[in-house]
Amino acid sequence: MKILEANAGLLSNFEVLDLLRSRGADKGFLGAVGAVTPSECKVYDYLVQSPAGTQTREKVQDFLKEAEQYSLTKAERLQASNIRPISAVEVHLIVEDCDERLSSAMVDRFVGSVEEKLPPPPEQSDETAEQGETEMETE
């Protein structure tokens, strides 16, 4: 084995999810030769309940374009699309030296564009579904 290039590019969570979906990870492990493996299914399960679960290619591209104006690094923009920060404290986590680089008004505007461009994470629908189930059970 020879490593030709250790870092040939960053992949956003959405891209990995899309790749795994095209491999058939959303249908679960079937055990066929060359088909999706259990470890791939686990990664898929993790990503599908993250904010990447509801994203589409157009929305992510749209967001990354929008985020260019905040002079963030590429890794910071990708992390923003992975985490979908919807509060100022989350933006401060992702952006290094946030106090010096972004004014609080810019942070607020950034949060606004995150909320506008990226769809809400799938968790909420899961929770309501679970609540629905427990209600069914109590009935």
């Binding site: 490593i3 030709l4 040939a8 969570n13 891209e15």
Partner: peptide, 29 residues
């Protein structure tokens, strides 16, 4: 975060996989 890495390897394709297309056989390996 996920990253892409490029590798080169010499792979031995076992005979029982020679009946399937080469690309699939290498993918399995």
């Amino acid at each position: 975060m996920f990253m892409l890495s490029l590798l080169r390897d010499t792979l031995r394709i076992p005979p029982h996989n020679l009946s399937i297309p080469l690309l699939d056989a290498i993918r399995v390996q």
